[in-house]
Design a protein around this nucleic acid. Structure first.
Length: 106
DNA sequence: GTGATGACGCAGT
DNA sequence: GACTGCGCCATCA
């Protein structure tokens, strides 16, 4: 699963472009990469924890701004803590003022 | 090979 | 606004 030039690398590269304090969604990433399915983004991020350089997977949420992937981190709370450390507000596993924090690739 | 699953998203009800 | 069903497609049993 660690082959170069796989769509995993494309996902990682795009997610690494998300600025500090901003977030993006699975759908936006899938659309930008023409994957055809937002599920593929989740599958890629599920195994991104050994990637180099590291992937800020905590900046990727679902279309409602919910931290649907938090359960896949080392602890269920680390994703929220990372986002809050970047100045975002998270309540009930959702990002407040989500649209203002949303980042889209050019 | 076949069917089920999933860090999702959208249309229909 | 919520709930449901379906499409999506790589991966696993």
């Amino acid at each position: 699963m660690n082959h170069k030039n796989s769509y995993y690398e494309d996902v990682y590269d795009l997610v690494r472009e998300v600025p500090y304090g901003k977030v993006t969604t699975y759908g936006i990433v899938a659309d930008a990469l023409a994957l055809g399915s937002a599920r593929m983004v989740g599958w890629a991020l599920k195994q991104c924890f050994g990637a180099e350089p590291p992937v800020p997977a905590h900046r990727v949420v679902n279309r409602k701004g919910e931290l649907s992937g938090r359960i896949h981190f080392s602890t269920p709370t680390i994703m929220q803590e990372l986002l809050e450390s970047e100045g975002l507000k998270v309540v009930d596993h959702k990002i407040l003022n989500f649209e203002a924090a949303l980042w889209r690739p050019e």
